[in-house]
């Protein structure tokens, strides 16, 4: 090795021995979809993200794309990237997302929000139906994140797609039993969501599994803020959860889901095109990078599923993931 290099000085060069972490844990694999739908597997890692020299990364982080049955909460700059005809119909929206490379469709039932259109069970079922018949991708359905309303509309949806292993959310600290029970009954996957606190995340996983949801059917969402809005907390919590899983903590060894897309598009940098400092740069470019960097950061910290919003973010992040996987 050293022969080809002539040294002026006598130096003893230590051989570089690459230290490898000897983790004992493995993140559980969770299968989403099936029974006529495409199936994707998430999780399964025995090393920190993409460090395949010291463990296995059997599945890449998966890209979910968010569609909404009431798109009015998204800024015009995002909606125009899909086209008006697309975003006014969740089926068309999901279909377009599938064409652009979505691996999972995240349907957020925004129309059910009590302070918005306050739609009910029928509208929710109809939105789910539209997405299910438009694409054969696995589905994730998230309610308006108002406890009573979530319980009201998510239970009938669970029945609607029985056995198709859809992801239902969110189970939260004071409201997890109803959604968890619906997941058990119809063989679905529950999202356990906690507010940026590693101990609460562990505790909720225990609670949700204690009432009968197998740990193989739980994704945990430890919450995140976008770039510039507290993403450092999410980076560290995901890293700590992943490290704990690899060190053998069974309760944290479930895949992590984060939503960098929707978190980005509610912030000023991605919403406001005029009347902001010139140093923020052009709106389209700035907003897209804001989503990409939020996603890139959280993917490097341990996210196993990320929900994105902008068509170009889907393209760039999927390309990045493929390269990180050495493909």
């Amino acid at each position: 090795m050293l022969d080809s290099i002539k040294f002026k000085l006598e130096v003893v060069v230590p051989e570089v021995e690459i230290p490898k972490e000897k983790w004992t844990g493995r993140v559980r694999e969770v299968k989403i979809g099936g029974k006529g739908r495409k199936e994707v597997v998430v999780g399964g890692a025995t090393a920190m993200p993409f460090l395949d020299f010291e463990g296995e990364i059997p599945n890449p982080p998966r890209v979910a794309v968010e569609v909404r049955d009431d798109p009015s909460g998204f800024p015009p700059g995002l909606l125009s990237s899909w086209g008006d005809d697309v975003v006014n119909d969740v089926g068309s929206w999901a279909k377009k997302a599938a064409e652009l490379g979505a691996e999972i469709i995240t349907l957020r039932l925004t129309s059910a929000h009590p302070e918005g259109q306050n739609t009910g069970v029928e509208e929710a079922k109809s939105a789910v139906d539209k997405v299910l018949s438009a694409v054969d991708l696995p589905l994730m359905v998230i309610g308006p994140e108002i406890a009573d309303k979530d319980n009201e509309i998510l239970v009938p949806i669970a029945d609607l797609a029985e056995g198709q292993r859809i992801v239902l959310g969110n189970c939260v600290e004071n409201n997890y039993k109803t959604i968890a029970a619906a997941c058990i009954a119809a063989n679905h996957i529950a999202i356990a969501k906690t507010p940026l606190d590693i101990n609460l995340a562990k505790q909720l996983n225990v609670q949700v599994s204690d009432i009968g949801v197998p740990l193989e059917s739980i994704l945990m969402d430890a919450d995140m803020g976008a770039l510039g809005y507290g993403i450092e907390y999410a980076i560290s919590i995901d890293e700590r959860l992943k490290l704990a899983a690899l060190m053998g903590d069974s309760v944290t060894a479930v895949p992590i889901i984060n939503h960098p897309g929707p978190e980005t598009w509610r912030q000023k940098e991605a919403k406001v095109s005029e009347g902001v400092p010139e140093s923020w740069g052009g709106y389209d470019e700035r907003a897209l990078y804001w989503e990409e960097l939020s996603a890139t950061s959280i993917i490097h910290s341990g996210a196993d599923v990320v929900t994105l919003c902008h068509p170009k973010a889907v393209e760039y992040i999927k390309s990045m993931i493929a390269k990180l996987m050495g493909q």
Binding site: E278, S279, W280, G281, G282, E285, R286, Y289, L293
Partner: peptide, 9 residues
Amino acid sequence: FSPAIAYNL
């Protein structure tokens, strides 16, 4: 370099 890239990074 662009202002948007710099602001993001």
